[in-house]
């Protein structure tokens, strides 16, 4: 059967999804690109908005903050998710219930979880009370430019790792038990089994989690908006918060759209690199 003939079959399978994605994502995104090329009060296309945001130290610093955040948060969350998935990949009594508890934070509105963490991270809050039990002195948390971003990482991780764990867990359970038996016969210890069996077998779900987690961390917004409003001293001014601020607080939609386009291009570049890293010869 020729590849060209397949195209009609493939299109039939793809039509509903393509239609939805193109009309409800790509098309509005192109409208944003259009708006981003119109300077305030201008009627002809120009790159003025882009020049403006790239010349703006606040936008620049939000891009650097976002990149720094990504570099820390993604490996951290993936490592924790994988660790949790391995820990919870068992048939012990009650495991299903505990898995649900780990996953649950993702199900409550981000606006509410932020309220809880705002209370927990208050200088007189639960977190410091907890540290006190271990003899540690009170920390400034969200009031400190040095610690606030770490707090955002903590909160987004609490929300997200259960979610990624669930997907990795499904991947772990797809690994045939026979591979581990063979590895044991070869005399591999637990760690060697993890490196030689688990990781290669998890490549596809891991690719998914890596890409999806990276994207979702680029788009973190609600915790920043509610917990820090980008502060103290812009230390948590992630790019989505910057975009929202420009669009709805500063009332400067055209530069907000330009920033959105920059963000999408940035993510696209990083995701392309990730695909290249994670691919093997067998996959196109």
């Amino acid at each position: 059967m020729s590849k060209t003939k397949n195209i009609y079959v493939a299109l039939a399978f793809l039509a509903p999804a393509l239609l939805a994605v193109v009309c409800l994502r790509i098309w509005p995104a192109l409208l944003s690109v259009h708006e981003s090329l119109l300077a305030p009060r201008a009627t002809t296309y120009s790159l003025e908005n882009y020049i403006y945001i790239f010349g703006d130290p606040i936008f620049q610093s939000s891009v650097w903050t976002t990149l720094f955040f990504s570099i820390v948060v993604n490996p951290l969350q993936i490592a924790i998710s994988l660790g949790l998935a391995i820990l919870l990949n068992n048939k012990l009594p009650g495991t299903g219930f505990w898995r649900t508890l780990v996953l649950l934070p993702v199900a409550i509105p981000a606006s509410v979880s932020a309220v809880v963490w705002a209370a927990a991270l208050r200088p007189d809050g639960l977190m410091n009370a907890l540290l006190g039990l271990f003899g540690l002195g009170p920390q400034p948390f969200l009031t400190s430019p040095q610690q606030a971003l770490a707090c955002i990482i903590l909160v987004t991780s609490w929300i997200g790792v259960g979610y990624w764990m669930t997907i990795l867990l499904a991947g772990l359970q797809d690994i045939p038990k026979s591979l581990y038996e063979a590895a044991r016969i070869d005399g591999m210890n637990r760690w060697q089994q993890f490196i030689n069996v688990t990781l290669p077998q998890l490549r596809r779900p891991l690719t998914f989690v890596l890409v999806a987690d990276t994207v979702s961390n680029f788009l973190v917004f609600a915790p920043v908006q509610i917990l820090t409003r980008g502060g103290p001293q812009r230390s948590t001014n992630l790019i989505m918060h910057e975009i929202y601020n420009r669009a709805f607080a500063a009332g400067d939609k055209s530069s907000a759209y330009a920033a959105t386009v920059v963000l999408i291009l940035l993510m696209l570049t990083i995701v392309a690199i990730q695909f290249r890293m994670m691919s093997d010869k067998g996959e196109s």
Binding site: T143, T228, P232, Q233
Partner: peptide, 12 residues
Amino acid sequence: MNRVFGDLRNGA
């Protein structure tokens, strides 16, 4: 200004 007050409050 809300951000400024936040920062001042935190000791900037």
